[in-house]
Design a protein around this nucleic acid. Structure first.
Length: 414
RNA sequence: AGAGAGGUGGCCGAGUGGUCGAAGGCGCACGACUGGAACUCGUGUAUGGGGCAACUCAUCGAGGGUUCGAAUCCCUUCCUCUCUGCCA
């Protein structure tokens, strides 16, 4: 959640920032008004409550002294009415405020380039030259069929479309990749954790998936529980509603989880192959950091993910997201896009974001900094999306006969 | 899933209608003592909101109710523990 006090005091500046992310001024204006109203109602309410508390204390005193309380009771009863009215007003205002505030995206960092969508993103650099093929490289679904690696039909039979089954060496390579990624992250100081793949609504709100993006989540019927769309949710919320000490920061976490997404807005996109599935494996990095550490950690996370791709021999590029392409919670994001020779283009394989204090404010993750409590910064990034890495290996390591070589670093894992 | 017990501050634990944001202990921080430390003694030590501040409002798992007044009574709900059942 954005800082409403800041919005109040620096409305114009905040409007400019959020315009970068495509937020119209009207909603922002509404938010500001609601906030001001709530403050006013609350302050009058507080005065009445203070009055009520005083009178109640007096009431007890009168009783003990055997004095007559009839007159006082009349006063107290009248005040009670006023409080009840004000309280109702305050509750309504608060709900309205929360509804808008929780749906308001994060401020983009000042460094974030302007732009409307993906096409305005900025390529920072390319790592490794794509291999030159002396034959026409095939797309991964063709290779999958030739090698019996992916069973799309039976995946659909078991669940529905956008589910698939990995078989044989593909299944083993999926597992090898998970282990390889976790080991790489551990070397960079990330603690490995194994978490529930189902989280409750409050956690999903903490990281920003709820209330606005519920349509993209698989919900457990009859319960306030959801299949996680990314390990970012359980890893970040590990410290939900906690006050950490400055000493224990930064907390670096990594974990493997499957991710479940309804892909509600993606009908027709990437329908073929394994690029966009309802369930996919991912190894995630999360950092809970002191604000003065977060820039450096962000850089480290990007380098780590890029380094893993390099170790796997996968050409990729580093892309800085523009304001319009930035996710809801992110203040800044860098994507890594891997080269897919079969598709002849770069495709996202990792997304690393600094949400600054946006998630920390929602999830109430704070740290004690000489007596004072401050919000932490939270960062998250994939290292890496496992299924897409498998796809990248298939396309980059294919031979003319359709067979697929194993990347050197993966051999000891298989 | 059924039966019973219970959820209080960083932890333990008292508190069954008012003077309780909460005794006492532990832990922690600071100070005194010491060459230094332990011991001992003193002081301090929840969170969120409003206010420059004095101060004030809210919070005793969560939500609602009774009452002038609720940690304390009532209802709902979540969670934990024990026993039974089931299961990896």
């Amino acid at each position: 959640m954005i800082d409403l006090k800041y919005l109040q005091k620096n409305f114009d500046e905040a409007s400019v920032k959020l315009a970068k992310k495509g937020v119209d001024g009207e909603t922002l204006e509404e938010l500001k008004t609601l906030f001001a109203n709530l403050k006013e109602v609350n302050s009058t309410l507080e005065v009445s409550k203070a009055e009520q508390n005083k009178m109640s204390k007096l009431f007890g005193q009168y009783k003990r002294e055997g004095k007559d309380v009839a007159e006082l009771k009349a006063k107290v009863d009248a005040n009670k009415e006023i409080i009840s009215t004000l309280q109702t007003k305050a509750n309504v205002a608060n709900v309205a405020l929360q509804n808008i505030a929780l749906a308001m995206p994060n401020f983009p960092d000042d460094s974030v380039p302007h732009g409307a969508d993906e096409s305005d993103n900025i390529e920072l650099k390319r790592v490794m030259k794509p291999r030159v093929f002396d034959f026409e490289p095939k797309e991964h679904w063709a290779l999958a069929e030739m090698n019996g690696w992916i069973d799309f039909e039976r995946g659909v039979k078991l669940a529905k479309s956008r589910f698939s089954v990995l078989r044989g060496d593909a299944a083993r390579m999926e597992r090898a990749l998970i282990n390889f990624f976790l080991d790489c992250n551990a070397k960079k100081g990330f603690e490995e954790v194994c978490v529930p793949f189902i989280n409750n609504a409050s956690m999903l709100q903490g990281t920003g998936q709820l209330p606005k993006f519920g349509d993209d989540l698989f919900k457990i019927e009859g319960e306030e529980l959801y299949l996680i769309p990314t390990a970012e949710v359980p890893l970040t919320n590990l410290y939900n509603d906690e006050i950490l000490t400055a000493k224990e920061l930064p907390i670096l976490l990594t974990g493997y989880t499957p991710c479940f997404r309804k892909e509600a807005g993606s009908a027709g996109r990437d329908t073929r192959g394994m690029i966009r599935q309802h369930q996919f494996d991912k190894v995630e990095m999360v950092a809970i950091a002191n604000p003065n550490q977060s820039a450096e950690i962000f850089k480290m996370m990007v380098e780590n993910a890029s380094d893993i791709l390099t170790q796997l021999g996968l050409p990729h590029r580093v892309v800085e997201l523009c304001g319009g392409d930035l996710g809801f919670s992110a203040a800044m994001t860098i994507d890594l896009e891997v080269w897919l020779p079969g598709q002849n283009k770069y495709r996202e394989i990792s997304s690393i974001s600094n949400t600054k204090e946006f998630q920390a404010r929602r999830a109430k993750i704070r740290f004690k900094d000489n007596k004072k409590n401050s919000l932490v910064h939270t960062l998250n990034g994939s290292a890496l999306a496992v299924g897409r890495t498998l796809v990248a290996i298939m396309e980059n390591y294919q031979n003319s006969d359709g067979s697929i070589n194993t990347p050197e670093v993966l051999k000891k894992y298989m």
